[in-house]
Amino acid sequence: MLALLIALALPAGAWAQFGHPLKGQWSGQWGPATSPTRLLLDLQWDGKSVTGVINPGTTDATVKAVTIDYTNPAAWVVKIQAEGKDESGKPVSIAVDGRLENIGAYTRLFHGTWTQGGRKGEFAVTRN
């Protein structure tokens, strides 16, 4: 019974989402493995554009533009531009240049290069 209750308590997102592959919440990190920065992407699809927020909270960034190249259906090339503020309140721009892979699997992966302010590093997030 306990196992069943735990199973039922698991988030439905662990199973599947077959709408727009970018839609949903994504977790991961960017930067050097020794001192990574945690990431949470909350992306939406309204039928016309992908919108969303990066790291919701006091230092969140709003997604301003998303472009997708579908040439390879198994590895979409995705570019995201976002604008936010850092801890000191200064505007900061974010540029994400990545590949969306494993599109049909629960472990859908979005990874590539993350540029934020003057820093640049690799990132990887999976869909929650």
């Binding site: 199973a7 698991l10 990574p36 472990t107 992966l109 690799e122 999976t126």
Partner: peptide
């Protein structure tokens, strides 16, 4: 890069494997 991807995938897979095991 490989390490950061492995970390991301490991976390996601662990959740799925766990849920499957419980199921």
């Amino acid at each position: 890069m490989a390490r950061i991807i492995r970390t991301a995938l490991a976390g996601a897979t662990a959740a799925v494997v766990f849920s499957t095991a419980v199921w």
